[in-house]
Simulated scan of single mutants.
Amino acid sequence: MGRTILVLNGPNLNLLGEREPAIYGHETLADVEAACRAVAEAEGYAIDFRQTNAEHEMVEWLQAGRKGMAGIVINPAAFSYAAYPVLDAIKLADCPVIEVHISNVHRREEAWRSKSIMTQVCTGMITGLGVQGYELAVRHVIWLRERGK
């Protein structure tokens, strides 16, 4: 296993900080990336941080990262609900995969938001802790890796 953590972000997260700040906060995706890097680098790990609005690109990144990563942190965003190619690509990972959602998808007004298809193949899920959920996911990947899991 390598010492790189792949952090993937789905559709519309490039607008984090602008898009519905009452729900998603004022931090930008660049802020999230900096926080993840700080956590990882303090423990001797690297971060490969990416965002896409294209499902096929997410699948390609997951396929490329399926072997040799310390772990994958993914905020699938709207891919969470019907992107079966992304789900299938996550299944191929030989490392822990932590699903992250900034808002608490189980408390959102739209009931469909709580039904992520990705959860069934992920190691764990962090939801509703704001952008700090990413840092916690990175910490958990490191914790698992250091324990040989």
Rank of each mutant, 00 (worst) to 15 (best):
1 M>E: 07
1 M>Q: 14
3 R>S: 13
5 I>G: 00
7 V>L: 01
8 L>C: 03
8 L>M: 12
11 P>I: 00
11 P>L: 04
12 N>K: 14
12 N>G: 07
12 N>E: 08
12 N>F: 07
13 L>Q: 03
14 N>R: 06
14 N>V: 11
17 G>M: 02
18 E>S: 11
20 E>Q: 04
21 P>D: 12
21 P>C: 08
26 H>G: 06
26 H>I: 09
28 T>S: 07
29 L>G: 10
30 A>F: 14
30 A>W: 12
30 A>Y: 12
31 D>H: 11
32 V>W: 11
33 E>R: 15
35 A>K: 15
36 C>N: 11
42 A>H: 05
44 G>H: 13
45 Y>V: 10
45 Y>K: 05
45 Y>R: 05
45 Y>A: 05
46 A>R: 14
46 A>C: 12
47 I>L: 07
52 T>D: 15
53 N>W: 02
55 E>L: 04
56 H>V: 11
56 H>L: 04
56 H>N: 04
57 E>W: 03
58 M>V: 08
59 V>G: 10
59 V>F: 14
60 E>S: 15
62 L>R: 13
62 L>C: 14
63 Q>K: 12
65 G>C: 13
66 R>M: 04
67 K>P: 03
68 G>W: 05
70 A>D: 00
70 A>G: 00
70 A>C: 00
71 G>I: 06
71 G>W: 15
71 G>Q: 12
73 V>D: 05
75 N>S: 09
75 N>V: 02
75 N>W: 01
76 P>Q: 05
76 P>K: 04
76 P>V: 04
76 P>L: 06
79 F>Q: 03
81 Y>T: 12
82 A>N: 13
84 Y>G: 10
85 P>C: 13
87 L>K: 06
88 D>S: 09
88 D>E: 13
89 A>W: 02
90 I>R: 02
92 L>W: 13
92 L>D: 09
94 D>W: 08
95 C>N: 12
97 V>H: 00
97 V>N: 00
98 I>K: 10
99 E>M: 07
101 H>T: 13
106 H>Y: 14
110 E>W: 01
111 A>V: 03
111 A>K: 04
112 W>Q: 09
114 S>C: 01
114 S>E: 04
114 S>P: 00
115 K>A: 14
119 T>W: 03
120 Q>M: 14
121 V>K: 00
123 T>G: 05
127 T>S: 06
128 G>S: 08
130 G>H: 09
131 V>T: 15
135 E>Q: 15
136 L>G: 11
139 R>D: 05
139 R>N: 03
142 I>R: 02
143 W>D: 11
145 R>L: 12
145 R>P: 02
